[in-house]
Structure formats: structure tokens, C-alpha cells
Amino acid sequence: MRAIGIPILSLMMLAGLTAGSSPSCADDATKSCEVPAYLLTSDSPLSKVAAAVKAGGPVNILVVGSRSSTISGAEGDAYPARLQAALREKLPGVTVNVSVEMAARKTAEEVALELGKLAEEKKPTLVVWQTGTVDAIRSVDTDNFRGAIDDGVAALQKAGADVVLMNMQYSPRTETMISPNAYIDNMRVAAQQHDVPLFDRFAIMHQWNESGEFDLFRAVHGVDLAKRVHNCLGRALSTFMIETARINPAELRIQR
């Protein structure tokens, strides 16, 4: 089955239906980072994050990801750093720290083995696990892939962390070479079964490409486009966290 890949029309319809129910991405001078509201929330809980924010922090976020979680030569402009900036801006008075654990060229299975230990050591409030790309490139067996996601998420939950799963980037140029759909579907299933939120990076970037927000097809020299995309991803992820954890930033401001 290939669930993802089509929903342009439904995205547009939904964007229309749900517009206004929650603000999409915050204003940005150059780019609006527009994302349909339903991609920016989840029914699965982020209870640890919600509690930590209520207590005024600290909210320690650990991003575990592959190379698409960074921009080589411009780490400070990659989405983890942008997430930290956006959260600090939106949650004034709450201590937010984002750290990154790079697992370049590692499959989900290889990463899953280390996740438990990592969470025990760092005691993060939330782990954002970005995975799938390496597995799709190597066309790892999808059953093994899902088993690895299951194990990894279970280990993180056991260590007492909230978990957000993040799928791969939408990459139109490599579409004829990498087939991400099976991995996206399996991540969605794993997320549902463990009741953890899934940040659908693929659908969001696909949406940006369709709407003309970013032209992801074109060859680009230099890191400018990557920086702008990561900035929007960081913002979208911050909104996703706040919406999913049912945090009301306005309330926070009143309290303080």
C-alpha cells in the first residue's frame, strides 16, 4: 500500500477546512512556512513535555537523527537549533535545551540498540527520533524496520522519555531511486501502536513543494535553500510539540 504520496488534494481541502482552527507556522519575514493544521498536531500525548512546561522547565529535547538532521557546515541553522530558538521564543520563561545525537549511516535497527542507554544517560524529556532514510536507501526489509522502530520506541518509553517519530525528507529528485512509502507507512503504524506522535516531515515538505513555497526539484549550489527549509521545519516542529502537548502559550504568559 502506498498511503502517502497522493494527498495533495486532500491536503488542500483540509487546509481549507481547518484553516484558522490553529495558527499554522508563525510569521517569518521571508517565508511563511505554511503547513496544514492537521499535520501540526497529533492525538497521541506528550505528557512529560506538558508537565515540564507547566513546571517552567527544563524541557530537554534530544534529537536522534541521520544526516538529514543537520546541514554540513551550518549546524546552527539546522532544524534542531531552529526548534530550540522557536520554542524559547514561544514559551518565554521556560528553559528549553535541544541537543543532537548524530547516527549517520545507521539503520533504525542499529540506532534502536543504543537508544535505551542514550536515554538513561541523558534523561531527556523528549526524544525526537528521525529515521527511515538510511533504511529506505538500503531497502532494508520493512518487517525488520518496523521491529526496530518498535524496540527503539519501547526502550525510550521505558527510560521515561516522551517520543516523537520523524520520517524522511520529501526528495523529488531521488524519487525514481528511493522508495520511501513502505517505510513511511510502517512508521505510521508503529507510532499508532505505541501511541506516540509522528511528525510527518515527508508530507510537510511535499506540501511545500506543491504549493511552491520551496522548489525542491531544482539543483541548488550553496546552503541557502537548506537553511530556509530547516528553519521552517524547526518552526513546524515547535508548533507540532506545543499543539500535541496541549500547551497554551498565552496562559503561560499570564502566569508569569
Binding site: 546541514i71 557546515g73 536507501i137 525528507q169 531521488t174 525542491l216 539543483a219 535553500l225 537548506a226
Partner: peptide, 16 residues
């Protein structure tokens, strides 16, 4: 594609 496409955003995907 390999010889003409360049985009730092997709350095990982180009590993294919």
C-alpha cells in the same frame, strides 16, 4: 542526476 544535481539539503539521499 548524479552529475548535475546538487543540493546540500539532500546530501544524505544522494547516497543512493
Amino acid at each position: 542526476v548524479a552529475s548535475s544535481f546538487e543540493n546540500p539539503l539532500y546530501s544524505e539521499e544522494m547516497g543512493i
